[in-house]
């Protein structure tokens, strides 16, 4: 499990049925690209978040493949449809096998 990895998500608390909402996500992760060298001149191996998914009540919103060119503390912003009340599930997959996730509930106003 990479150290100090913390997800952060911004989702409105309520929406009207059928609304479009903007979702912003950030996860604190070094995103070691595999290009850098340590003090002894050895390549520091790649270690990044390589995939992000967002699902709503089990249905997929977006599926992103991330490469080493994504900046440290990966930021992703996108829009989702809200057909009904429910849970947005956000999942990040780490090169080292760890999986980080967080869930945000949205109500219909």
């Amino acid at each position: 499990m990479a150290k100090g990895v913390k997800p952060r998500v911004k989702v409105p608390k309520t929406a009207a049925a059928g609304d479009t909402i903007t979702i912003k996500t950030l996860i604190s992760h070094k995103m070691e690209s595999g290009q850098r060298k340590d003090d002894d001149g050895n390549l520091i191996p790649r270690s990044i978040i390589n995939r992000f998914t967002c699902d709503f009540n089990g249905e997929n919103v977006i599926d992103v493949t991330l490469e080493p060119a994504i900046s440290t503390n990966p930021y992703l912003e996108f829009e989702a449809l809200v057909p009904e009340a429910g849970d947005f599930k956000f999942t990040w997959y780490d090169d080292d096998g760890s999986v980080y996730d967080t869930t945000k509930t949205i109500a219909i106003e």
Binding site: K6, R8, K10, K24, L26, S28, N73, Y75
Partner: peptide
């Protein structure tokens, strides 16, 4: 405050 990456460290 969400776009600002510094704020995640404030949360920590």
């Amino acid at each position: 405050d969400f776009d600002n990456p510094g704020m995640i460290f404030v949360e920590q």
